[in-house]
């Protein structure tokens, strides 16, 4: 990289804007994080460092409620992400490994539909649909709704990865008398793995994140973390909510790191 090209690329003002961008993105999160360690029960007055709100999250009066919500959130996210990842892998194989066919564009439109429709519209439509067919609201309704709208999020990284893998790998396998199943599970899937992991993680986070659809379709007594947090926050922001937020924030950092490592694994063995 020569000095000259650096100079051409450089626009004065872009560095400060980028720093502002980071401050904007992190400022509120970091402040909430700091205040989650505040000893004072009044959330705006600083009363010294303490872990009492974390203790309350795990052992306080409301702990069972939030633990149950966390349990629901994680089980739903695992199942929704796994199912949508499997569906996304199938779809990606059909879209990228089966030549051109009628309905390809339509399929792509269909798969990306949940991305394009505003979430609140999906939520309304799903609620009306479940109520019309008499599907009783509860844990299952949340799960089913999550599977549908996680598919595009799983699909995009998987398809992107599959696109970068030449088809001669599985062709060679089949030429060597491997069955199609063997060709997929032993040859193609290991190559696709980074994409599959990214897709799974993204779908997992999207499911874990979702508030609007869950809020519409959840049944009696079934809460996920976002709906439980929302319910609590409506009555005022309490320090224990900040502690939960900080824990979830840490979790996000872990997920990004995992996803990043998966990507790195991908670029290394790309060949």
């Amino acid at each position: 990289m020569t000095g000259k090209s650096q100079d051409i690329r450089h626009y004065s003002g872009f560095l400060p804007i980028s720093l502002i961008c980071l401050v904007l993105l992190y400022g509120p999160l970091i402040i909430v994080m700091i205040y989650s360690f505040n000893d004072s029960p009044s959330i705006t007055v600083w009363g010294g460092f303490s872990l009492r709100w974390y203790d309350e999250v795990f052992h306080g009066l409301e702990a069972p409620k939030f633990k149950k919500a966390a349990f629901n959130s994680f089980t739903i996210a695992i199942m929704a992400a796994s199912t949508s990842t499997v569906i996304a892998v199938c779809t990606a194989l059909a879209m990228l490994r089966c030549g051109n066919f009628r309905g390809k564009a339509v399929t792509f439109g269909l798969v990306s539909l949940p991305l394009m429709v505003p979430e609140i519209v999906t939520a309304v439509a799903t609620l009306i649909f479940f109520s019309t067919i008499g599907f009783k609201a509860g844990y299952a309704t949340i799960l089913v709704a999550h599977i549908a709208f996680c598919i595009p999020f799983a699909y995009l990284p998987i398809a992107a990865r599959l696109q970068g893998i030449e088809s001669f790998y599985e062709e060679a396998a089949v030429d060597l008398y491997a069955s199609r199943l063997q060709a997929f599970f032993q040859i193609l899937m290991p190559l696709m793995l980074p994409g599959i992991i990214s897709g799974f993680l993204l779908a997992f986070v999207i499911s874990l994140d979702d508030f609007i659809i869950t809020n519409f379709v959840k049944g009696a007594g079934v809460e996920t973390l976002p709906t439980a947090i929302f319910g609590a926050v409506k009555q005022g922001i309490k320090p224990n909510i900040m502690a939960i937020s900080t824990l979830l924030l840490m979790l996000s950092v872990i997920f990004v790191t995992l996803s990043y490592l998966a990507g790195k694994m991908g670029s290394r063995d790309k060949g």
Binding site: T107, T126, A145, E170, A183
Partner: peptide, 22 residues
Amino acid sequence: GVFSGLRNWLLLPSWLVIGVLV
């Protein structure tokens, strides 16, 4: 392609899920 014969089966899950649920 190797998986061409399976195309409709591979497409079925996403068509079904998104068609029915969205």
